[in-house]
Computed example of a mutant assay.
Amino acid sequence: MMLKKHLNVPLKNDAFLIKFLRPCRYHQETAFKMMRRFYKFKAKHPKYGMNITPNAVRIVFDNDVFCFLPTRTSCGARIMIMNIGTKWNPKEVKVEEMFKAIMVAIEIAMLEPKTQLGGVHVIINVEGLSLVHICQFSPHLAKLIIDWVQDCAAVRLNGIHIINQPKIFTMLFQIFKPFLGEKLKKCIVFHGADKKSLTRRISPESLPEHFGGTADIPDYPGSLFSDMLFHYEEMFKEFGVYGYSTDKAKS
């Protein structure tokens, strides 16, 4: 007897296939490899990869730890915000829930045709970062997060922008640094408190005033953002049945 793994995906669903093909510029072999890595990660790490929906990680969005801006860059890229300092209370939002929220957010981005073409900018606001926050991250979890972002997520990552970092941020970065590939390293830009540095990379028309931009973006509560994401709940449940299944078969 031997174990055979089968990849179950809807090959006749164009929208499903395009979310892998577009970020890979329709290179079929590259897109298929990405798809396999995407589902192998989910199968290998079911704690993070299985039964994950927007509602399952709603607490992360409710607490404003993670959100999307309603605006896009001039090139059509989606802008994601992570607040892992002042707005993150590890007693209320576990670090594992944050990772699941990253996966949910990226999968939602993968579903958007504009984002498939324009890609994503991620702004990580670490204002108020403390030892309490840093101690939530183990090297193992850091590796899982980096592996997911750079090897499994079918999305064009245009930039990772670190802003408002205190000196203690160096300790956090050292946990993640050993796992960064060269391509991902080139995406990371450290801006500190220099808002002009950020707006040179992302047009000010796309950013709110507190990030140095000129966009009139209301400071809406995270719960409202969670309600918006609930629109994708059934879609996540549908896609959740896809992936690798392991069956016993005769050799």
Rank of each mutant, 00 (worst) to 15 (best):
S138H: 05
N125T: 04
A105E: 07
A56Q: 06
M35H: 05
T73W: 01
I84Y: 03
Q116E: 07
V132I: 12
D227A: 14
V120H: 00
L157Q: 10
P221I: 14
S138T: 15
S245G: 12
T246G: 02
N89E: 10
K195D: 06
A101T: 00
D64K: 08
W148M: 08
F16M: 08
T170V: 08
H161S: 02
T246Y: 04
I145Y: 05
L144F: 05
K250A: 09
K44Y: 12
Y48C: 08
K100P: 04
K196Y: 09
L229M: 15
S130Q: 13
D194Q: 04
V149K: 00
Y232S: 01
G159F: 02
I108C: 04
M35I: 14
Q165F: 05
N13P: 01
E209F: 13
H161Q: 03
E209H: 12
L129H: 00
M34E: 09
K91M: 11
L198A: 00
P204V: 12
F32Q: 14
M82I: 08
K250E: 15
N8Q: 10
D216A: 12
K47Y: 13
A15H: 12
K44G: 11
K250P: 09
I84N: 02
K94V: 07
A101Q: 03
H210C: 12
I108S: 03
E92A: 03
F61Y: 01
F225N: 03
L229S: 08
M82V: 12
V241T: 11
S251K: 10
D219C: 11
E107H: 05
Y220R: 10
S197E: 00
S251P: 12
I145H: 03
V65I: 11
I163N: 03
F38G: 00
D62E: 13
N51S: 06
I102N: 07
D147F: 01
K167G: 14
I123W: 00
M34A: 10
L184R: 13
N158M: 08
R25I: 11
N164D: 06
I123G: 02
K183S: 10
R22M: 13
G128P: 07
E233F: 04
Y26I: 00
L144P: 05
T71I: 11
F16P: 06
F169S: 01
I106Q: 07
F176Q: 09
I81C: 01
T115M: 05
H133V: 10
F16N: 09
K114F: 04
K12F: 15
L180Q: 09
F190H: 09
N83F: 06
I102R: 06
L17G: 09
G222T: 03
D247E: 13
I123E: 01
Q136G: 09
N164C: 07
D247C: 08
H121R: 00
S74D: 14
P178H: 08
P10D: 10
Y242S: 03
W88N: 04
P23K: 05
K183L: 10
M35A: 09
M235W: 08
I79D: 01
A77K: 00
M171R: 07
F239A: 04
Y242T: 05
